[in-house]
């Protein structure tokens, strides 16, 4: 009994080592934080449509069926890479794809969509980035699925 207790610190040590080694081996990004909004209702939004020819949406339009809401910006590099994937998703038509144009200039956003194609069914504009905070957004556009 007296001797087995000395194994305890060693076990704790290996426990701690394992706990901290797993994320390193898995190469998971420590900066990625789990969203606080999982399983919660979509935040209310009353954003204006990005431009006239396209309908906007509010939180009520997201009820019923699955919708992928994508924050995008013409100034955002990774969005360009992501855009190909969005185009594919819109062709597959398995989910509805809505866009929120984040802190962008309308003209730049329209040029972006006409250059790269427009995968979105509906688009609203979040000019001051306030809606992005409601969605738990970080420093650049992010995907949210409902």
């Amino acid at each position: 009994m007296a001797k087995t207790i000395f194994v305890f610190p060693l076990l704790v040590f290996f426990g701690v080592i394992t706990y901290f080694t797993i994320p390193i081996v898995k190469k998971s990004d420590p900066k990625l934080i789990p969203s606080a909004l999982v399983d919660k209702d979509v935040p209310e939004n009353k954003l204006p449509p990005l431009f006239k020819n396209k309908r906007g949406f509010d939180h009520g339009d997201l009820v019923g069926g699955e919708t992928l809401v994508n924050f995008f910006s013409s100034w955002c590099g990774p969005c360009r890479v992501e855009h190909d994937i969005l185009m594919k998703i819109s062709e597959e038509k398995t989910v509805r794809l809505f866009g929120i144009n984040y802190k962008d200039q309308t003209q730049a956003a329209i040029r972006w969509l006409s250059e790269l194609g427009d995968p979105f069914e509906r688009i609203v504009a979040d000019r001051d980035g306030r809606a992005a905070i409601d969605w738990g957004g970080l420093w650049r556009p992010r995907n949210v699925s409902n």
Binding site: A36, P43, G136
Partner: peptide, 8 residues
């Protein structure tokens, strides 16, 4: 803020 971003 916690509602949107969590305790972190």
């Amino acid at each position: 803020l916690v509602d949107r971003y969590g305790d972190f």
